[in-house]
Amino acid sequence: MQGVLHQILSGLATGGIYASLALALVMIYQATHHVNFAQGEMATLSTYIAYTMVTAGWSYWVSFIATVVVSFIMGVVVERVLMRPMTNAPVLALVGVFIGLLLIVNAMTGWIWDFTIKTFPSPFHSSTPLLGGFLSGHELGSTVVTLVMLLCIYLFFRHTSLGLAMRAAAYNPVSSRLVGVRVGWMLALGWGLAAAIGAIAGMMIAPIVFLDPNMMAGVLLYAFAGALLGGIENPLGAVIGGFAVGVIENLGGAYVVGTELKLTLALVIIVAVLMIKPSGLLGRTVMSRV
């Protein structure tokens, strides 16, 4: 019984990882209606930038804020330079760009910082393990950060006119342009915000899995499963989905399907959700009139 409890808590901790990256996926989807496959690698790059700042002797929180700002600019630049020329391109061409971006960023981080794992500092120290070793201070702290991010995104999209304009630009670019929304800049803003959220996710994940160029490869897949499970248009859904995938994966791996099929379980979740409720558990079915 203690084992089950421990598995659930450990699953929540890993789920927190998925949830934070899932939020970045939701952000980009809300803003552009695309899923950026390079989201994970961009987050890894941001984490390396933070790592460089910290090793250069900057304090953690200064590096943290600087990294978020730099990542935001990076996201905007990527949209302006790479995505803008593709405005009218078919979806497959966009997928090509996303995958190219993934490979380029991955190879670049490996080239600059090499592939050996690095320790990334955590701002949340705990001298003694919490709950008898079930949870570390960092796991608790990063979960809180994820929840705060969730709240901010929720407030931004629901209660600010900018958030509304961004949603409108993604949902119906033509009508938005007619009512005066600057669609191009809304898309760039979405990329910037997604990159910034990704950077925070990266900095929360790196102390747990160690920093290396392929840090996000596995995480992105689970984050995607989480986002789809909860609803990729709904930040709250994505976070709940991320936590749920973490727990399901742990319990399933330990007691049901065995550790060999843990990843398969995540993929089964994706397929099942797409078949039964494509908009996710908390997603709304949107109908568009043509």
């Binding site: 421990h6 598995q7 699953g11 747990i208 791996g253 843990k262």
Partner: peptide, 21 residues
């Protein structure tokens, strides 16, 4: 025997499984 895949983000769950046994 407890296995993990190279694609797994963490091995925490496996560690818990071994400890609780």
């Amino acid at each position: 025997l407890v296995s993990y895949e190279v694609t797994d983000p963490t091995i925490d769950s496996q560690a818990v499984q071994l400890q609780s046994a």
